[in-house]
Amino acid sequence: MSKSTTRAAALGALLVAAACSTAARPSSAATAPVPSNNAPMTPAQMADAHATPYTRADVAFMQGMIHHHAQAVTMAGWVPTHGASAPVKTLAGRINVAQRDEIAFMQRWLRARHEPTPDPLAHEMSGHDMAGMSGMSGMSGMGAGDTLMPGMLTPEQMKQLDAARGAEFDRLFLTFMIQHHTGALEMVQHLLAVPGAAQDADVFRFVSDVNTDQTTEIDRMRKMLAAYDASSHQGTRP
């Protein structure tokens, strides 16, 4: 636990530091850009002038979150071959699709701004052989100086999950994915604490979606874990 908190603090420091370096960016406009005739720009003119500001913190968030999401894809990729139950299969199926799509979104956002764009899933041959991957292959290049993003599983935790089967896999998968998602919420929290971050409408929407979707999924996973935990005499509704 303390490890994750430390990582979070480190990330926070990183994002703050990144934000401080944005002062020189011409795109970080603090006041409305004014075209030569001194009439205020329309929103369309502002978009065409690419005047919507973003900060180094936004960029670092996207880069870091790509690696964060890639680990969830790796974890979800083990579900079909590790004896997971049907509810976990359903959940993981959705996580797999969702996190891949979000990686694609973050890559589009970075590429459109000519920022370095990580592609941790590029090594996938067909996208269908995740289970054959070693636990470590998804762990290469953590981004942000190879520091684990908040909530990411350590190599030991990945090994532990990959070695588990059946109900033990279910329990570990849920436990670790809650840890993983909780880290994503921390990343959003830290980003929003950076002055000028998430001003871009697409970034704000994305982090809001990460916040609500993963909060919702954490709740779902906690209930699934609780159901596994509940003793049978407490009963289940028909």
């Binding site: 636990m1 994750s4 004896g83 997971a84 139950s85 049907a86 089967r165 059946g166 109900a167 033990e168 279910d170 329990r171 570990l172 436990t175 809650i178 840890q179 909780t182 954490i218 906690r222 874990l225 935990d229």
Partner: peptide, 17 residues
């Protein structure tokens, strides 16, 4: 949250479909 989760006790068992 994480503490609540991590304190969950687990024990090995066979897979239930």
């Amino acid at each position: 949250i994480a503490m609540g989760v991590l304190s969950a006790a687990g024990c090995a068992s066979s897979h239930a479909a």
